[in-house]
């Protein structure tokens, strides 16, 4: 699993911080309408297949690549970015701590990924509209 240590999720109405990916994902599912929840579940299934495919393509263990698609928002973008060996080594090293900040705005969703190595860090930044477009039930 990509070593996602913390996810900060910001919306116009507030913010939440999570110490693990499963914690964040449960929150995302809980705040979604039943219809949107199904979409998220399907996306997760596709995302898991994508992660496995990336592991096979580049010779990583499956646990190293799990959840990688959440760093780049769109699978196509992830696929393109991961062609770069520097990016792969950055995000798949289990020693690197990954912090994800997700900001939902009226204009789209901005994802900022900070990968911390032992003594320095790299910032990857991306703007996506899906799959992070998670609207609470009341807004559906």
């Amino acid at each position: 699993m990509v070593n996602i240590q913390s996810i900060v999720h910001i919306t116009n109405s507030g913010h939440h911080a999570f110490n693990s990916f499963p914690e964040y994902w449960n929150y995302a599912l809980a705040r979604s309408s039943p219809r949107h929840r199904e979409k998220l579940k399907k996306f997760k299934q596709v995302s898991d297949l994508f992660s496995d495919g990336i592991a096979e393509k580049y010779g990583y263990k499956k646990e190293q690549t799990k959840n990688v698609s959440f760093l780049f928002g769109r699978l196509s973008q992830g696929n393109k970015k991961l062609e770069d060996v520097f990016i792969r080594e950055l995000v798949f090293s289990l020693e690197h701590q990954v912090i994800l900040e997700i900001k939902e705005t009226d204009y789209g969703t901005h994802v900022v990924v900070t990968v911390h190595r032992e003594n320095d860090f790299e910032i990857l930044s991306t703007v996506v509209t899906k799959p992070f477009e998670i609207k609470p039930q009341s807004e559906q």
Partner: peptide, 16 residues
């Protein structure tokens, strides 16, 4: 300032 995250510990420490 909303969240403050201290990196380098395992797990990282996050303050809201």
């Amino acid at each position: 300032i909303k969240t403050v995250t201290i990196v380098g510990t395992e797990p990282v420490a996050v303050y809201e």
